[in-house]
Amino acid sequence: MADQLTEEQIAEFKEAFSLFDKDGDGTITTKELGTVMRSLGQNPTEAELQDMINEVDADGNGTIDFPEFLTMMARKMKDTDSEEEIREAFRVFDKDGNGYISAAELRHVMTNLGEKLTDEEVDEMIREADIDGDGQVNYEEFVQMMTAK
């Protein structure tokens, strides 16, 4: 299944994987998964984290390695993001709930994920998604960005 991913997608997933893999040992533990999910405003229980890991832990060693992570991402993409997942993601970014993602809100979430971005990089990300040019990202623009192939 992971063989249907483009090189660009694999590179993006590698970057995402390293955000989860806090200690850089090449595997994601339940603790690391929990840290990232909490930084995104989720509050999973230990059991939920274990279930999430077990779902993709092909070799049964209790952690997720990069090939397992790729399989999980490929699977998720095949079920292409349901509207509800996209709306949920939008809410994570839209901290003040005004229906727009500002540069400050984007920077806040990315920083929580451990991504240190310059102001230019954040502005560039907003510009790429900002179709109507108002300097922020509304829900429609967010959907376009998330579903762009």
Score class of each variant (00 low, 15 high):
A2K: 04
A2D: 14
A2M: 02
A2P: 08
D3A: 06
D3I: 00
D3G: 11
Q4H: 06
L5Y: 00
T6S: 13
T6A: 12
E7Q: 11
E7F: 12
E7A: 06
E7T: 03
E8D: 11
Q9Y: 13
Q9M: 01
Q9E: 08
Q9A: 00
I10Y: 02
A11P: 03
A11D: 13
A11S: 09
A11L: 08
E12T: 05
E12K: 10
F13C: 11
F13R: 01
F13D: 15
K14P: 01
K14R: 09
E15Y: 08
E15S: 14
A16H: 02
A16S: 09
F17K: 15
L19I: 05
L19H: 04
F20Q: 10
F20T: 02
F20P: 04
F20R: 15
D21E: 14
D21L: 11
K22A: 14
K22G: 03
D23P: 04
D23R: 08
D23A: 12
D23V: 12
G24K: 12
G24F: 10
D25N: 12
D25A: 14
D25C: 14
G26A: 13
G26D: 10
G26W: 10
G26R: 15
G26N: 02
T27H: 04
T27V: 07
T27D: 06
T27I: 11
I28G: 01
I28M: 14
I28L: 10
I28F: 13
T29I: 12
T29E: 05
T29W: 02
T29M: 05
T29F: 06
T30M: 03
T30N: 04
E32D: 13
L33Y: 06
G34Q: 04
G34K: 03
G34L: 11
T35C: 09
T35D: 04
T35E: 06
V36N: 00
V36F: 13
M37R: 07
M37S: 03
M37F: 00
R38Q: 06
R38K: 11
R38M: 13
R38N: 00
R38L: 06
R38A: 05
S39Y: 15
S39D: 01
L40Y: 01
L40A: 15
G41D: 13
G41M: 15
G41H: 02
G41Y: 00
Q42C: 04
Q42D: 01
N43I: 13
N43W: 04
P44W: 08
P44T: 12
P44R: 07
P44V: 14
T45C: 03
T45E: 15
T45L: 11
A47S: 12
A47L: 07
E48Q: 04
E48Y: 11
L49G: 13
L49V: 14
Q50K: 13
Q50I: 15
D51I: 08
D51K: 03
D51H: 02
M52L: 10
M52S: 06
M52W: 06
I53D: 06
I53E: 01
I53K: 14
N54K: 08
N54G: 03
E55M: 10
E55G: 12
V56W: 05
D57N: 12
D57L: 02
A58L: 01
A58G: 07
G60V: 04
N61G: 07
N61V: 14
N61F: 03
T63H: 03
T63R: 10
T63G: 11
T63Q: 05
I64R: 05
I64A: 08
I64S: 09
I64K: 01
I64L: 08
I64Y: 13
I64N: 10
I64W: 06
D65K: 07
D65H: 03
D65V: 12
F66M: 02
F66K: 07
F66S: 10
F66R: 05
F66I: 06
F66T: 02
E68F: 01
F69D: 06
F69R: 01
L70R: 14
L70H: 01
L70C: 04
L70E: 00
T71A: 13
T71G: 07
T71V: 06
T71F: 02
M72W: 11
M72S: 00
M72G: 00
M72A: 02
M72F: 15
M72T: 13
M73A: 13
M73F: 14
M73V: 13
A74D: 08
A74R: 06
R75Y: 12
K76E: 13
K76C: 15
M77I: 11
K78Q: 13
D79H: 08
D79R: 11
T80D: 07
T80V: 06
T80R: 08
T80E: 09
D81I: 06
D81Y: 07
D81G: 12
S82F: 03
E83V: 13
E84T: 01
E84V: 13
E84Y: 09
E85K: 04
E85S: 00
E85G: 10
I86C: 06
I86M: 00
I86A: 08
I86F: 08
R87N: 08
R87S: 07
R87Q: 08
R87I: 02
E88K: 11
E88D: 11
E88Y: 14
E88H: 05
F90V: 01
F93I: 03
F93S: 01
D94V: 06
K95L: 04
K95I: 04
K95Q: 13
D96Y: 04
D96H: 05
D96A: 00
D96L: 02
D96C: 15
D96W: 06
D96V: 09
D96R: 02
G97L: 00
G97C: 09
N98M: 15
N98T: 06
N98H: 10
G99F: 06
G99L: 01
G99P: 00
Y100E: 15
Y100P: 00
I101A: 11
I101M: 02
I101G: 02
S102K: 01
S102G: 11
S102H: 09
S102F: 05
A103N: 14
A104F: 02
A104V: 10
A104M: 12
E105H: 15
E105Y: 06
L106N: 06
L106M: 04
R107K: 14
H108Y: 13
H108V: 12
H108M: 14
H108K: 06
H108E: 15
V109D: 01
V109N: 01
V109G: 05
M110G: 05
M110K: 06
T111D: 01
T111E: 14
N112G: 15
L113N: 03
L113E: 03
L113D: 00
L113W: 02
G114L: 06
G114H: 10
G114F: 03
G114I: 07
E115D: 10
E115P: 14
E115K: 11
E115F: 01
K116G: 15
K116F: 03
K116Y: 04
L117V: 05
L117S: 12
T118G: 01
T118P: 07
T118W: 03
T118Y: 13
T118M: 09
D119R: 10
D119I: 02
D119L: 08
D119A: 15
D119T: 15
E120I: 11
E121Q: 07
E121A: 03
E121G: 10
E121L: 00
D123P: 09
E124V: 12
E124C: 15
M125L: 13
M125Q: 05
M125R: 04
M125N: 00
I126A: 05
I126W: 06
R127L: 14
R127E: 01
R127T: 07
E128L: 06
E128R: 02
A129F: 01
D130N: 10
D130L: 04
I131V: 12
I131C: 07
I131A: 09
I131D: 00
D132L: 00
D132E: 08
D132A: 09
G133T: 07
G133A: 09
D134R: 04
D134Y: 04
D134M: 09
D134F: 03
Q136G: 01
V137W: 13
V137F: 07
V137E: 02
V137P: 12
N138G: 07
N138H: 10
Y139N: 13
Y139E: 02
E140Q: 13
E140Y: 12
E140G: 11
E141D: 10
E141L: 00
E141M: 05
F142A: 04
F142Y: 11
F142H: 06
F142G: 01
F142S: 00
V143R: 15
M145I: 07
M146S: 04
A148Q: 15
